[in-house]
Amino acid sequence: MRWNVDRIKHLLQTETQKAVLIGTLIVMMIGLSLATPSFLSVTNFTNVFLKVAVIVIIASAANLLMVTGHFDLSVGSVLAFSGILHAYLCKHGVPIEMSMLITCIVAMGWGGINAMTVAVLGINPVIATVGVLFIARGFAFLVARWDGGANIMTGLPMEFVDFGRELVFGIFPLAIVMMVAALALFLFIEKRTEIGRFAYAIGANLQAAKLSGINTVGIIALLYVIVALFAGLSGILQTSRVGLAAPNVAKGLEFDVIVAIILGGTAMTGGVGSTIGMLLGALVVGFASNGLILLGIPFYYQSIAYGVILIGSLMLNQRFTNPARA
């Protein structure tokens, strides 16, 4: 396709949301660098990106899940539990690689429960995934307690933190590399695989997808399992980097993830959305909360903003995409 005026016009029309996000990002960055000198520093940017990395790793999978019209509220708990489990296993003599493998498999098990209640039984995901939110969080505290304290921090093997602090090629923190890998993987799934195509089809019209012979239950279930796996990986990564496993981490992470995805232009009802949009959404979430801290604005205004975004996006959805949907 050649780049002509029409093509650019068309792109501007279809990609408005991304353009707005990029604009917001630029305005935020300029504003913040003028307002606070500490904003434009390597340390600060590393911090923002480390926060964004966790959101993006999980959201890349959760984005495709939301494209099918579903979501997962248990990712924060699964992350916390996986971090604790990994630290516990390593501390008690399991080799690190083995411990990671076990943790990933258990994380996928959490996803399996969600897959069963939502995809197979067809229960509303808001309620269904809350079951796992409870149980995984409870076990996170319990395992930490079995270890003998509120957190697991002492007695971890030396290699434990090495993994999290590893710099790939000597410069890139592992979290950033994993973020890029997760993004690349889901860009690839979105653009180049059957699963990606089917996810959009399921979100756009579940009935037509079934009549076209698409295994709708299987794909939704698979995505739940991948989301949980990525939450588990993030947990391992975060625990390793900090060198400390705490059971109360990542509370409310699920909402960071959902808001990043919605900001990125994915409809909660499914059918539209993109991995790139989600990345931009996550950056806006990351820089916005960083900005709040730097400007000394209490974090809780963010909560209000999240609520407004959630309800607002659905209202807009009702107004604009519904005629197209019907």
Binding site: Y200, A201, G203, N205, A208, G271, T321, A324
Partner: peptide
Amino acid sequence: RREAGIFGLL
């Protein structure tokens, strides 16, 4: 067509 045939958003 709309309910079971097309994927309207795509």
